[in-house]
């Protein structure tokens, strides 16, 4: 197996007296989809925020391509190629698709003052979005006019365009309809074949199992289990997420 692109070792995080993470270890390989599962409050969001540089960990180490790193800001993580797609705060609804697409990475032209090159931005946005089968009325339409699935796709397309090596998806399917979910899962599958490492956070075992290669279950700030796809069944994952207790079966 290839070397993990990012490896987090024994991460702990306290917020004042609250212990959010109590020693979580996690890694992901290029071209792999590693799903992070857990119920609400398990510490999934806090954990990925340490991976993306939003919260520096209280203790524990992060290795990127075998090298020890510290992320003091989201910018540090982004510059390494770690892109995060947040469930609802990735896009700014009142801004246009192309302004959102290039937010923080605006193409510039001109001298001596570098101006935002709207023409290039609009053209690239249109091209990249059509690769994901999203046809925009105009790259200048507001993101607020897109559906939830389309917004997720814009965010994923943006991350990929800017050379993401690790793509962290925070509950990308939780607010989506059936068809949009299928689109997002399909996109995850495509990313994997491009050699991008995908970290897929969800509490929906079905979604996870359909694209995941490896699964890690968190509960109350601790790792409960890590397993490859061939070692575990969806039912087993579901039970692990519930903290080992058998869930009342409502499915059939």
């Amino acid at each position: 197996m290839s070397e993990p692109i990012i490896k987090l070792d024994n991460i702990k995080k306290n917020f004042g007296s609250v212990i959010a993470l109590e020693g979580v270890s996690f890694d992901v390989n290029p071209g792999e989809c590693h799903c992070l599962l857990g119920d609400n409050g398990a510490g999934k969001s806090t954990f990925i925020k340490t991976m993306s540089g939003v919260h520096p960990p209280s203790s524990g180490e992060i290795y990127f391509q075998g090298e020890k790193v510290t992320f003091n800001s989201p910018h540090d993580a982004i510059s390494k190629g770690i892109a995060t797609v947040y469930q609802d705060l990735g896009m700014i609804p009142l801004m246009s698709v192309s302004r959102n697409f290039f937010l923080g990475n605006e193409p510039t032209k001109g001298w001596p003052v570098k101006l935002f090159d709207h023409e290039t931005a609009n053209k690239i946005t249109e091209d990249e979005m059509s690769k994901f089968q999203i046809l925009l009325r105009s790259p200048e339409q507001a993101v607020g006019t897109l559906s939830g699935g389309e917004r997720q796709t814009v965010a994923i397309a943006r991350a990929v365009y800017f050379g993401a090596k690790v793509l962290i998806l925070d509950e990308p399917t939780s607010a989506l309809g059936v068809k949009q979910t299928a689109n997002v899962l399909d996109t995850i599958d495509k990313m994997r074949t491009k050699g991008i490492a995908v970290v897929f956070i969800t509490h929906n075992v079905r979604h996870a199992y359909s694209v995941g290669d490896r699964f890690t279950v968190l509960d109350r700030g601790k790792t409960i289990a890590t397993a490859n796809k061939n070692e575990v069944s969806p039912d087993k994952l579901q039970n692990l997420m519930a903290g080992g207790k058998e869930l009342p079966s409502l499915e059939d």
């Binding site: 939003v54 989201p74 910018h75 705060l89 896009m91 801004m95 937010l103 923080g104």
Partner: peptide
Amino acid sequence: YAAGGDASAAKYAGV
């Protein structure tokens, strides 16, 4: 625009 539209989204994008 981004700072006023959604400050945390803007921060996460590196603004």
